[in-house]
Design a protein around this nucleic acid. Sequence first.
DNA 1: TATTGTTATACTCTATAACTATA
DNA 2: TATAGTTATAGAGTATAACAATA
Lengths: 164, 164
Amino acid sequence: MAAGGRQNRKPAQNTHAADGKSIQYGPLEHWIGFNLRMAQAASFQAFSRRSKDIGLRPGRFATLTLIGQNPGISQTALSRANGRDKSTLTPLIADLVRQRLVRRVREVNDRRSYGLTLTPAGEKMLAQLTECARQHEEELDGIVGRRERAQFLAALKKLADALA
Amino acid sequence: MAAGGRQNRKPAQNTHAADGKSIQYGPLEHWIGFNLRMAQAASFQAFSRRSKDIGLRPGRFATLTLIGQNPGISQTALSRANGRDKSTLTPLIADLVRQRLVRRVREVNDRRSYGLTLTPAGEKMLAQLTECARQHEEELDGIVGRRERAQFLAALKKLADALA
DNA sequence: TATTGTTATACTCTATAACTATA
DNA sequence: TATAGTTATAGAGTATAACAATA
């Protein structure tokens, strides 16, 4: 992992202040928005810990999956699928290509664009990360409760969808 | 809002690729971790849109709330409550002080630390942001469904707690 | 020695705008 | 003119390490 970093500690909902009084969260405590942020950060950190030996940042995982699932996808289509500007993809893809995980091929029909595919090494890396994610998901399932899982997932999807 | 920015578009779960084929998300689609990220990003963006006229970045909101709820809190205690390093608080607090929203007072008992409190302008700003957040929460409640709300919130808290 | 807060530095992620090469 | 991708530039957010003042 690079020098700077990603090792956030736990977001501590109820740490005691230095003076011994417990911290008051006020309305934050009861808000979906705030707790969504806390849960997301905690999940991301847990996944980072789990995947840190693989040698690819967790942020690359979604990109690799999307290329794997959509072979030949263009950078613009990929950036749309991610909800990011296309310019943010240039260095990211360059990095994946440099690591020989992704191949870029000029489209014959439209020579402005590139088709992206995984190399065998990319497939292998994706498989490793996917296994990691599967284990991570099992952990999350255990926390949320397998019976509540479907409803929880549905709520998350409704939020992402409706707030578009 | 500053130049760089925060205006992410919607994370588009099912945008069509340029070539007309729909994007495949593969296993991402069914994973809590991924959907947590999407929902959090969407919620954050929606709150940003709602609060952008107030003149304080949404990231300052939690800080302001924590100071308001814990008058006299030290920077170190605040950074722990936030789950961030204390060094990240220095420029943030400096900014809030410069805007006359927060007051810093040397502790008499321990002259290494400062006690943080809101100024009247800070209280007013916090009240505006809180009202904004209340409306935002109503929107989220409407999406999640008022009956499912408690269970959803409980699941988020369990995640943040358990992954500490 | 230990802790509070600051400074210096660096890295990630993201954006906008202007550019090129194609279409 | 319009689109795909690149480059230049910028800003927010975060971290670590070394430091000064104080305990």
